[in-house]
Simulated assay, not measured.
Amino acid sequence: MRVLLIEDDPTLGRALQEFLTGQGYAVDWLAEGQRALLAIKNYTYDLVVLDLNLPDMDGLEVLRTFRQQGSQIPVLVLTARDALADRVAGLDAGADDYLSKPFELDELAARVRAFARRHLGTVIPVIEFGSISFDTVHRELRVAGELLTVSVREMSVLEILLSRASKVVTKQQITQALSAMDADFSENAVEVYVYRLRKRLEGRGVAIKTVRGFGYMLELEESA
């Protein structure tokens, strides 16, 4: 899932970018409203995390602007404005959720995961396919009941394939979902993660099939 973080505080912005990246998301961090509007116009995002106190324009104006332009990107407002009137104004402007500062990182992570489940088209906390069981809340992967430790990127690739199990997912779709504008992430990297996942899933009854010219598909092995 690709996230646009709009936060003008450099310390907090950097910390949140690192934290969300560590959770498996591709995160672009911008500090100005005008630059954020340009990014929303030119890139595809699955979630916007928006601070309201920006140096060049009010965050609510940023929100109203891209809503008026027809954007339906989910928005989590993240701000020190915690009065009832402020929360109402944020939701009326088009926000989907509102988290007041200061906040706990665990709560932020839980709210972002909720948006991620919506993006994947499911509100089921555990996705199961064959011998695979993936807990989307606690980010735990089990194969045949055994806890499997994989890297954050590997888990993100597998989650995308699981969300579309038995359907083809293109390399471009995976790359776009996991790429940030300042990150060196390519279709070649996707191939590497898929190769590693294949090795980990060998003999487990589930396989990642290459559909030449298109991408990959998670499927049950015939012997399973």
Rank of each mutant, 00 (worst) to 15 (best):
R196F: 12
K199T: 13
K41P: 04
E221L: 13
D92Q: 14
S179Y: 08
V48F: 01
A83V: 09
E187D: 12
R87Y: 10
S163W: 01
V190Q: 00
Q72S: 09
V157K: 00
I6L: 06
V123C: 10
T11A: 13
G59V: 04
L105H: 14
S156L: 03
V112W: 00
A207C: 12
T79R: 01
Y45P: 01
A31K: 02
I208T: 08
V48N: 01
E32S: 07
V77Q: 02
A83L: 14
F129T: 05
A95N: 02
V3D: 01
D106G: 06
F66D: 01
I132D: 00
V206K: 02
M155L: 14
T122K: 05
E191P: 02
N53C: 08
K101F: 07
R200E: 05
T170M: 12
R204K: 15
L76M: 04
V157Q: 02
L220Y: 05
S163K: 01
D8Y: 07
L91F: 12
P10S: 10
V48G: 00
F185M: 04
L120S: 12
E104D: 14
V168C: 09
G13D: 08
A109K: 04
Y98H: 08
Q23Y: 11
L12F: 10
G59D: 04
D28T: 03
Q23I: 09
V152G: 06
E191N: 09
T11I: 10
V192G: 07
E128H: 05
S131C: 04
I160H: 02
R14S: 14
G24Q: 06
A89P: 04
R139M: 10
Q176M: 14
L63A: 01
R81A: 11
D86E: 13
L63V: 05
I40F: 03
R142V: 02
V48L: 04
A114E: 13
M181F: 09
V123Y: 12
R204S: 15
A85I: 10
